[in-house]
Nucleic acid binder design. Structure first.
Lengths: 214, 214
DNA sequence: CACTAAGTAGAATGATCGATCTATCTAATT
DNA sequence: AATTAGATAGATCGATCATTCTACTTAGTG
């Protein structure tokens, strides 16, 4: 029942309206109408619309990274397969009928280019996602995990953006094959080394399981 | 002197404000103040703000594709090098101190997700860019030029987006190496094959013609 | 000169923006 | 029962939103 506090209702309503109609296009009146709360509750809890936007992006980041982490976890046990599993997860995401892209990217895209609030929140979110990918790349035994993570993240953001415009979930598959080409040419051999022949079998099994999206 | 007509002044002012502050955040009053024209001139010429946004995106697409075509042309004569030259061109673009990303992507990101006007204009623009890349991939002798073009365009959009958030032009170099990995694994051997000396002339002629769009 | 087309300045429209201020009510704590 | 914190509805603020209107000026054409 903690989810139904006034603050949570406002946050949920704001999220729905922000991601669908855009942050700037969404007014306070719409938010409190959707939330069914009083106007002053919003200002007492979040201070201003900027404060609400900040809270929204923070929450969105937490939720998204939580989903992403468990989507990778669910799919495969070997790190290398989990790297490719990124794009199977994206495929599920893109297939949602109310897919709206990345809230952070959208926020940066619509905000004033001199504004640093939204941009800083986005940089922090992307930094954390990058760290997740880099860890997988490291565990998979790639020589330059940081470099590889940046390249995979770039492919991810490309897929997220293209999917937003085209509304075609198969973009995820295209991105997956691009990532596959990248991995096949990436140098291997860090301290901990790649998966041994034992885990190779697992890879095949896991890749099959990953083939079915949502 | 045709560039200084009232309509052009309005279009230029709108462009400056739209790309810097966002379309929704820019009011009619700001635009006419920046343009130094009368309010009614805007409505007589463009009908409404939506009409002005449409004209802005059309123009932006023409200008960008013109720049892109000549940037590829200027760099290399062999089609395969021109494919990689895409990302050198992006590097120049990202290095502009007032880099604001892709106006189309930004417009889609900030528009209501049910709105089809902005999205259709964006799809048309991306389709034309895709055609340019596909032609190069075809001339370079790749077996599946359409597929490769989609993948390269995905890397492009990823780089455009990441550069918008990070403001780091070196993203272009990272994208270039990702594309390099992709090209190195892509199947070769279409009907016309990689450019022989005979077809090189044709390629050069065609690329030259394409260099001057608007 | 008369006519036309295009641009100008500025008032005015009703709606909505984010934000503030009451005044009332409810629920939990003391 | 008295107190207190939080939520409520709703009026109100000045500013801005996109759009329309009128009246005046200018440039070009017959």
């Amino acid at each position: 029942m903690q989810d139904t506090t006034s603050a949570e209702k406002i946050l949920g309503a704001a999220r729905r309206l922000f991601v669908r109609n855009g942050i700037h296009a969404t007014g306070i009146d719409q938010i409190i109408a959707e939330a069914g709360t009083a106007r002053m509750t919003l200002y007492n809890r979040f201070g201003s619309k900027d404060g609400l936007v900040t809270a929204f992006l923070r929450r969105e980041g937490e939720v998204w990274r939580g989903w992403f982490a468990q989507a990778l976890e669910r799919r495969a046990t070997a790190p290398e397969d989990r790297l490719l599993g990124i794009f199977d997860a994206l495929g599920e995401w893109f297939s949602q009928d109310d897919y709206y892209g990345c809230a952070f990217i959208n926020a940066v895209a619509e905000s004033c280019k001199d504004d640093d609030l939204v941009r800083d929140l986005t940089l922090e979110h992307k930094r954390q996602v990058l760290a997740m990918i880099e860890r997988l790349a490291d565990e998979a035994g790639f020589a330059e995990p940081a470099r590889l993570a940046h390249q995979l993240a770039l492919i991810m953001d490309g897929a997220i953006t293209v999917a937003l415009v085209t509304r075609d979930p198969s973009v995820a598959h295209m991105a997956r094959e691009t990532a596959k080409a990248l991995l096949s040419t990436a140098a291997r051999g860090n301290a901990r080394g790649p998966a041994d022949s034992e885990s190779d079998k697992k890879i095949d099994r896991r890749a099959k399981a990953a083939a079915e999206p949502a």
